[in-house]
Nucleic acid binder design. Structure first.
Lengths: 270, 270
DNA sequence: GTTGTCCTATTGTCCGACAATCCGACCGAG
DNA sequence: CTCGGTCGGATTGTCGGACAATAGGACAAC
């Protein structure tokens, strides 16, 4: 009883206000589409706004669903739909084995997965991703060289060793390559660039695996490039790091060509 | 009646199988946390998988919620929660004034909004964003110079004019600046870079507005830079485009310094 | 052809319910 | 007094079922 009334009244209000606003333009008589978004959207937006405004800070527990439902004058199911919305955006999450939801800041991983979906579904091709890497990675390497600390160096070396010692046909090797890029990003101390580049190496991974399989010299060339880059980063030689990374990324493309993989191959998922 | 049974059986099954698998290693006896994710998550993942595998293609209408519920042997509410998940990821959406949901590819705007949330909530500072722009924008300009067509030029010029003719204290001017960067991205014909850079100019917008207000010569410097960049793009002079964009972005930082805005100011929302 | 009417499928929202389980409080044994 | 058990309330995950609003289509009337 109460709910149909509420629903009708909100819909009616928005319709009439829109109509009233547009009523005076007589000439072409254009109306903007009457905005009519479901309750779960509004609830989600309301909570999202509170989070972005820092009224709810990361780590805070959200009020119980029932409380929210009462505050918004909405059924619990509706609140739940809104929560799923926020959950998928990474704004709230449930710590493993906890009951209440807590506010959280979107992690890099979530952004990256969204990016991956977008790239895959838009049939983005290998060249496009490669081009982006050509733009970003050398600079990241240069920044990393300038800012790395001892731990970064250590981690990079460890991954490099892991790559060298990975067995011949190991499908895990590409994973290690991706990790190398990630660590370099971390050493560059720029979260924006990290976010931007995060997904690049990852979406390339599947085809990279095929490439490494087909091109015998690929492994050693990658290992060599990594060694040189680590060397430059160790010496805090930004220019050198940039140059070698540039060469390294360029090599990827050459590898693809040698492997007979077309540059227009769309990146794929897994 | 049927549902509690189903719930119990899945939980029990995963628990016992995990235990059985780990049962033989006696030494440290490590168990991985028993995975127990709610039904709405699984449903969402199942549908997501079908989309990424192209079994559901962009534009296809999803089956009605009730059908999905029956197929998954799950209540309609559960399906709905899963759908909200996908909706927020941009994998499905409802075209305005349509009933069924249709599969869609995540638009740049959604990715960008996620990125914005992340940057804001992680207290990313102005310099970090600026640094990313320094890396990306000049190369984008260079690519744009190489690949622009007549329409790109036209659009860029239009926006440039709009900026020049925007009144003195117009808060809309920063919007126009952001648009300029977007158009340049479009002209560069690389969707990966567009996605990566999309949110940069936007998160800067609020503080950019303050900067323009405080620094009298900012407007004319921006206008000048735009003119030069458009000129280089017009001449297909990549090198020149890169140089001017580099200068342009560097100028932003100088503007901030002149305006007395600290480089460590966190980017804000709206 | 356009407009009005009617039907059906489907969504948005609600109600109410219940099992599982987390959490904190309380309590007895060492 | 700390530590491991026990118990009850709070909260979530999920379900069945309901109903109004509306998109979409078929079909008749103008």
């Amino acid at each position: 009883m109460a709910q149909p009334r509420a629903r009708r009244s909100t819909a009616g209000a928005s319709a009439t206000s829109t109509a009233a606003k547009a009523h005076r333009e007589l000439e072409p008589l254009r109306f903007e589409p009457v905005e009519r978004d479901p309750a779960y959207t509004r609830v989600a937006r309301a909570i999202e706004a509170k989070i972005l405004a820092r009224e709810l800070r990361a780590g805070d527990a959200l009020p119980p669903e029932m409380d929210l439902a009462q505050q918004f004058r909405v059924h619990r199911s509706t609140v739940r739909e809104a929560l799923r919305r926020l959950e998928s955006a990474g704004l709230v999450k449930r710590p493993p084995g906890a009951k209440r939801m807590v506010v959280s800041r979107p992690a890099a991983a979530e952004l990256a997965s969204g990016m991956r979906h977008a790239l895959v579904l838009h049939d983005v091709t290998f060249v496009e991703v490669w081009e982006a890497m050509m733009v970003i990675e050398p600079e990241v390497a240069a920044l990393a060289a300038a800012r790395r600390d001892q731990q970064d160096l250590q981690a990079l070396t460890a991954v490099h060793e892991a790559f060298k010692s990975s067995p011949k046909g190991d499908p895990h090797a590409v994973e290690v390559v991706a990790r190398f890029f990630e660590l370099l990003g971390a050493a560059a101390r720029n979260r924006v660039l990290v976010l931007a580049k995060q997904s690049l190496a990852r979406v390339l991974a599947p085809s990279l695996a095929r490439m490494i399989d087909k091109v015998p010299q690929a492994r050693s060339r990658i290992a060599d490039a990594q060694r040189r880059i680590i060397g430059a980063v160790h010496d805090k030689n930004a220019e050198e790091a940039r140059r070698w990374m540039s060469k390294h990324v360029r090599d990827f493309k050459r590898g693809y060509e040698l492997a007979g993989i077309s540059p227009d191959t769309p990146v794929s998922v897994d």
